[in-house]
Amino acid sequence: MIHPQTFGYFCREAMINFKRAGAMTYASIGVITVTLFIMGIFLLLIVNLRLAQDVLIKKASIIVYLKDGLPTETIQSIQTNIGRQVNQASQIIYVSKQDALEGFKKELGQQEDILSGVQGNPLPAYFEIKLTPSKRFSWERLKKIAVAIEGMEGIEGVDYGQKAVEVIGTITDVVRMFIIGIGFILGLATLIIISNTIELALFARQDEIEIMKLVGATPWFIRCPYLLEGMIHGLISGILSIGLLWLIYHFGLLKTLAANPIFLFLPQMEFISWQMMSILIVSSGFLGCLGSLLSLHYFLKSNRE
């Protein structure tokens, strides 16, 4: 347990280092902030891609097209079989060939004439399944249901918005891979920048550290102020980068989207969650500590041969 007086000493020393490094401190915080900001943009992207995918899945309905000329009993048995695949809350609506045509005509409105050249009724009868998905409903589950229904007898085809969801899914996967890669590189960059800044602080106080060792300060006592300094670097950068991201999100992105009607089809957007923000800040603080520890490791290496 650290004595409050000792902790006060560590904080004071860390602040002294912080001030002494001056321009170097600001430069390092600036660069790390930009680094974390870039990371934040990708996180924002992935959050919203996931959100879009979620919205699509939650709204999902399955359209089951039937082959022409099926006897009523077959249609009924298909409905029963579909009912077994989905949960009880889901609605299964039968739309006959005739109803489908009527519906289509209604949609066309005044342009109904287009159909005048068409012989008979080209539209198939279909079931519309309105799913009431539970919270944990996933894309995989939807796909499984659709595939099971498609395998039934008398089914022409199944449509469940697979294209849109699959495209978003692929993008999400690519972005996720990218985040892992770029996160590694940016993390390493942060580590090196902090480690260099701390090393300069260590060089500036070389004499002091030597005397500390000689009068019997433990290595941890010597390290603590520098670890704290590295951590403060990381934390400040983390907070600044999130602030910057929030500003750009609210006053840049959302304003632009609202002003352009082409983006109206986009679902609701979301900022990164509190948890994600905390993780970003805490991990940058941790990186700061680690960077410090690295330079301390080389600096304090005992020269006792």
């Binding site: 004595h3 007086q5 000792t6 009068v215 006592f221 010597i222």
Partner: peptide, 11 residues
Amino acid sequence: AFALRVISLPS
């Protein structure tokens, strides 16, 4: 005082 501070003696 530095020599005493770094061994965490009370003020």
